[in-house]
Amino acid sequence: MLEVTTTHYLVLSFVLFSIGLFGVAARRNMITVLMSIELVLNSVNLNLIAFSYQLSDLTGQIFAIFTITVAAGEAAVGLGILIALFRLRETTQLDEATELKG
């Protein structure tokens, strides 16, 4: 039976982070981007918990709960922006919203 070590968690976390980062950078749909951000945040959470377990320090887990809380807020604000954008432009495509182009 393969023992699950901290390294395994870290690799999983890295994979999740990379997928999330890719989603943030490559996807054009804003919902997908928000979901990708959640993925990134969760990969970080995984990381924190993995180290917390290894170091037997609860601080990491508490931090993870904080992160989840903030991520919830982030998702609420992000979806609020999404709805505002959709009302204005009737689209959720990010490359339609280039007002800040220099």
Binding site: L21, V24, A25, A26, R27, R28, V33, L94, D95, A97, T98, E99, L100, K101, G102
Partner: peptide, 13 residues
């Protein structure tokens, strides 16, 4: 320098 500001959120990310 203004070219840096593409307006694409993805770029910023």
């Amino acid at each position: 320098l203004r070219r840096v500001q593409t307006g694409f959120v993805s770029n910023y990310a």
